[in-house]
Amino acid sequence: MTSGPDDRHDDAGVPDRTGDGRGADDERGAPDMEGSDIELLRIWRSNHLGPAIECRIEAALMSDPRGREALGGTVPAQRLERNRLAIMGLATAPRRGRMERLLVRLGVSDSAARLATATPALRAAWLISTVLALLFALATASSSTASGLERVVVYLTIAPLVPLAGVALAFGSAVDPVHETTVATPIDRTRLLLIRTMTILITSIAILMIGAVLLAAPAVAAVAWLLPALVVTAGSIALSPRLGPQRAATVVAAAWILIVLLLGGLSGDSAAAFQPALQVVWLVLATLAAVLVDRQRRHSRYFEA
């Protein structure tokens, strides 16, 4: 500190740059600080004197600890305690990982970054099992008996189930490492749902794209599973309030496999479910499911905090 203890760097008064106002202020405050604090606070709370005077009062109150306390006394203790718990919770939480720091640097808010990276589905175990499942699918698909087309179809059928499983895990009864933080911080459940679903979708899509490249699939096939993935993910979220996240995911996954097999069997083209005409259907269904989720959000308590 460069100057005396009474130096106010936060000179939030009128633009009094000359400094001659400070001495007067201190003299006035010294003999009867408590009485003048009460009077200042009363005027400040009346909220009718305009920003300049309010600012001057704030500066006067800020200049001594009792004045600060008086200002703070206008905030309900319960509210301060709630904020304190949230801050202490975040400060004592494990240090931010590399991913979380990257997200924060990219402009994602602290809380969103923490929720996104703490998504249960993103834990190493899930990522490893996803990669293993994909490798298994690739191995099966590339066995000598399978033709090139069949390989691609197996991949396309399994790919949409990856984000689906992730979402089911994220909102299931699985242990949630940030559960306490979520309880202490008032957070919109819809926002939580969106952040986590987006995180899972982005991660899954990245993994699946790599899988498609490894399979040396035709360019179209590399993206043909995208819309079905959106349909099953949004569909399972829409069904969650009725069935619970895990059962909804199971039902949707079964329905998806059944549809692929049925369409393939009926048309004689095993990739029928991924042809352009069907892609339009998936697009419509994905939109419908999104609308359904949005409506449920508004009418059902399920998505409320």
Partner: peptide, 22 residues
């Protein structure tokens, strides 16, 4: 932004703006 009532209601409030600029 709310306000302002006339500030010359009493010495005390007036003294808050203790400079000409204020």
């Amino acid at each position: 932004v709310v306000g302002t009532e006339p500030i010359d209601d009493g010495e005390f409030v007036l003294s808050l703006s203790d400079t000409t600029v204020g």
